[in-house]
Every structure is written in C-alpha cells, then in structure tokens.
C-alpha cells in the first residue's frame, strides 16, 4: 500500500467514525417512529408498525399546527422575497451615496441576535395590540428575515449583467418591467435560495411564535411539538418521533432541492461568505 492510499484510508475511517456518532440521534427518531414500544434508546423495533403515524395524523396534533406553520412561514417568506427583490434592484443597479451606508446597516442587522429583542417585541406587541395575532407574527418574521434576504438578493442580482437590461430600456421598458421580466428570471437560482432559506429558518423557529402567540389553536408545529410532554400525560416517544419526522420532512426536501439546483450543498456556506 502506498502512502496516498494509506492516507485516504485514514481519512475514510475518521469520517466513518464522525458519521457513526452524528447518526445516532437521527437513527433514534427513525427507528422509534416505526416502533410500537419506543423508548429513549436507539434500538431496532421488534416489529415494524405505522401505528405511531396513524396516531399523530389527526387534525389537532398534526394538520392544524402544520397549516399554522405554513400560513406563518409562507406569508412571511412571500413578504420577504417581494420586499427583498424590490429593495435589491436599486441597490444593485444604481450608484448612489446612500447605497453603502444602507448595505452596511443591513449587514449589521443581519448579525444581531434576534433572541435578545424578543422581550421588548413582546412588550411592544402588547402595547399596539398585535400580540397573539398571525399577521403581527408574520410581520415580525418578515422584518427579522429581511436584512439577510436583501443582502443575498443584492449579491445574486449583481451577477446579472447590466447589458442585458439596456436593450429593454432602449425599448422603453420601465425598471419595474425589466426587474420582473429580465433580472428575476435570470437569477432564478438566487431567488430560490433566498426563498428556501427564509422559509427554512422560519419553519424551524421556536422562540418567535412561542413569545408572540398565545392561543394554542394558532400555534405552529415548532411550538405545538412541546405538547407531547405535559399536556398528553405520559410521553409516547414513538408518536413524538413520528411527528418530528413529519414536521422535519418539508425543510429537508427543500434543502435537497436547492442544494441540487446549485450543484452541491455548499451554496449557503458560500453565500454567507459574501
């Protein structure tokens, strides 16, 4: 065996070990969901069953919270994408002395720990009567996702050459038409990254709806999943696992979708670098 093969073997073994450690919690959720007698350990089920899925696939456990999640995250994502695309256009296309300070502020806001402002947001929402409303929560979600979305969108838009628009301009198209008909279609992958990224971040967010919503009937899945402890007496781990899988599947699929589209999973890492 030469040194190169040896080194590759050592690297393979290292990765295999890391994979084995990282996969344990994931194995628990998959195996427990299919096990009628699931507990807290990773174990192969005695017999495979879909009873856990049957038990959780009812309105008040799965469908209502997922619908709430969809309304919250879908609404906020739509707002984010539309506002970010509109905002990114002048930032990317026109030179202005406001661009740099604006972008710096955006970048600064991107990094702020949103968790820290949730107590004042709660107090503010009580004052202006937005507490426990879906639209209030959607607005807050959108506002907190916007800085990063604008930043990403502007960077993607910079990649679309200006010359392509100039022909449309001479034909008398307005900037809005040229954004809608030329720029956005050309940056399809960029728009989908912004959309999926915003949606995935919100779908998994627990603290924001936990603070701003009160009525259990409006709670998204990220909060309602906690009901498996407490409200329903003894914890049925198999059902918790089944629900976790149902709740996580959309974001995993969305991630795979954009990772494919951009050739490898490195898009987000690369995008964050600027």
């Amino acid at each position: 065996m030469n040194r190169r093969t040896q080194r590759r073997l050592a690297a393979d073994l290292g990765l295999l070990f890391a994979a084995a450690v990282f996969v344990l919690p994931l194995a628990w959720v998959v195996l427990s969901a299919l096990d009628a007698e699931a507990n807290l350990k990773v174990k192969v089920p005695g017999s495979l069953t879909f009873d856990n899925f049957d038990a959780v696939l009812v309105d008040d456990v799965t469908f209502t919270p997922l619908l709430n999640s969809l309304i919250l995250c879908g609404g906020a994502t739509a707002l984010v994408v539309v506002c970010a695309a509109l905002a990114a256009y002048p930032l990317s296309r026109y030179r202005s002395r406001f661009n740099r300070p604006f972008l710096l502020t955006i970048l600064f806001a991107t990094c702020l720990p949103i968790t820290a402002v949730m107590v004042p947001v709660y107090a503010l929402f009580v004052q202006v009567d937005l507490i426990d409303t879906m639209h209030g929560t959607i607005f807050f979600f959108a506002a907190s996702g916007l800085p990063f979305a604008i930043w990403l969108m502007k960077n993607f838009m910079d990649g679309v050459p200006k010359e392509l628009e100039e022909a449309a301009w001479t034909d008398g198209a307005s900037s809005f038409q040229s954004l809608l008909r030329i720029v956005l279609p050309l940056m399809g992958p960029g728009v989908s990254v912004v959309t999926v990224f915003s949606f995935v971040m919100m779908w998994g967010n627990f603290f924001v709806p936990f603070m701003l919503l009160i009525d259990p009937a409006q709670m998204p899945a990220s909060v309602s999943i906690n009901d498996f402890f407490g409200n329903r007496g003894q914890v049925v781990y198999g059902q918790l696992a089944a629900f976790s899988i149902i709740y996580s599947t959309p974001v995993i699929l969305l991630y795979v979708l954009i990772a494919r589209r951009l050739g490898g999973g490195f898009a987000l890492g690369g995008a964050v670098k600027g």
């Binding site: 295999l16 959720v29 807290l40 350990k41 990220s222 781990y237």
Partner: peptide, 30 residues
C-alpha cells in the same frame, strides 16, 4: 455519506434537534 448526515442534523428544526439530543443524553438514553 458523512456530509449528508452532518447537514441533516443542521437542517432539522431546532426543537426537533433538542428532542433528539434529549433522548440521546437522558438517563435511559442511547
């Protein structure tokens, strides 16, 4: 394989990750 597993852990919603590791570290856990 390893990339896929590690990235899955990252993509999972925060609360789900919390439950999985709760089960992992619990007294009767993995």
């Amino acid at each position: 394989l390893t990339g896929g597993i590690v990235v899955t852990a990252w993509v999972l919603p925060e609360v789900v990750a919390g439950f999985l590791l709760y089960a992992f570290f619990q007294k009767q856990g993995t």
